[in-house]
Design a protein around this nucleic acid. Structure first.
Lengths: 206, 206
DNA sequence: TAGATTGTTAATCGATTAACAATC
DNA sequence: TAGATTGTTAATCGATTAACAATC
């Protein structure tokens, strides 16, 4: 149940559980045991049960887990039905790739607006989302109150923009800039997607 | 100091160390202590020393670490001077974004070719890299022997293409498709970049 | 009921932190 | 030499795995 702090290790496994459980659900599979799910995912049955029990028992002895219920529970935990509002800062290749390809709805978000310094982008739409000026960012964040900001702007502007966004009331940052954001003291969670760290790890391993 | 297996936790911290140490190097800083580096990075001095000692002591008692040597050692560990050859499969928005924006050289790679099913892309160049047909992939991998493949193709083709690439001799996979690749038995390392898992984690945390 | 499988406690394993002798 | 800081061993902490009573 709530109360006890849930470790990051567990939290980071939840989206992966969701992916597998959702697949079972789409298949029409009605139930799954911790052992069978563990085998599919390359985990131990013990870990699966421990993980789910962090959030309260949604299984049933002698039966296993009802797939539909389990899926609904994970959706609730991850707040996937929330339709949180997101904005994206920086409409370069990467920003555009996310706007065009990425299914935000699937993760519980809706992309509401994009921002870029380039005059020629301002006013156009990308994948149905309007691109606004950086000058309008403060007003937008303070009044429209988006939940998260996606940083796909050049690294040298990242920390200043992140600091401003936090000051203006953003609740979370999805950081693609490759720099660490030191949001001293602030309680704003940051998720980093650091391509080069990932590739360097692969370089080590081959 | 090879011999002992180095844990993934340590390996994944190395690129981050490199980032900080490289910054010190670019600044002209000559030396750094484990304590000072730990403070910058939000780690403990103990952890910094333990991590570096996995690869052999490159510090000096009473002095700390020589930044230039430390940087060179990490570059060597991560094989950043190697110029490994990479190919990219799928020249959609994401593939194009990586080709255009990402500094492969910085991570020890050179992007040699791209592959796509779309006829209209074949023959063109993107960021100076030729786009070839999927039919030519087998021959290319078997003869040009690239080290890694970057998967930026639609998820439904991911596991088949990954299996083929392994069969043809690829040494590593950088996987952006959002599906888990089950390369049964094979020794090919896979690094996953799963956007939706990262965003769902953020959704949980806000 | 008997068999299956959970929820949960206990045991193990690994990673992080602390301590300190070695030494520059 | 005295002060600083490493390399490394020992202690602690947390996460994973195993075991098993509860129970569907």
């Amino acid at each position: 149940m709530e109360g006890k702090r849930i470790s990051m290790a567990v939290i980071r496994r939840m989206p992966r559980y969701y992916r597998y459980v959702d697949e079972l659900y789409q298949n029409g599979t009605a139930r799954i045991s911790s052992g069978a799910l563990a085998a599919k995912m390359g985990l131990t049955a013990s870990q699966v049960r421990q993980d789910f029990n962090c959030f309260g028992g949604f299984g049933q002895q002698g039966y296993g887990y009802n797939v539909e219920n389990l899926r609904a529970s994970i959706r609730e935990i991850l707040k996937l039905d929330c339709s949180h509002k997101a904005i994206i800062i920086g409409v370069g290749n990467l920003g555009r790739a996310l706007m065009t390809n990425f299914n935000f709805g699937q993760s519980g978000f809706a992309l509401a607006a994009a921002f870029d310094v380039k005059k020629e982008l301002q006013g156009i739409q990308v994948a149905g989302v309007p691109v606004l000026s950086m000058e309008s960012l403060q007003d937008y964040v303070e009044h429209k109150r988006p939940d998260i900001a996606i940083l796909t702007l050049p690294r040298q502007f990242a920390s200043q923009v992140a600091a401003d966004l936090c000051k203006w009331g953003i609740r979370g940052i999805w950081n693609f800039t490759g720099v660490d954001l030191h949001l001293d003291g602030l309680e704003v969670p940051v998720e980093n997607v650091h391509f080069s760290e990932s590739l360097m790890t692969l370089s080590y391993r081959i």
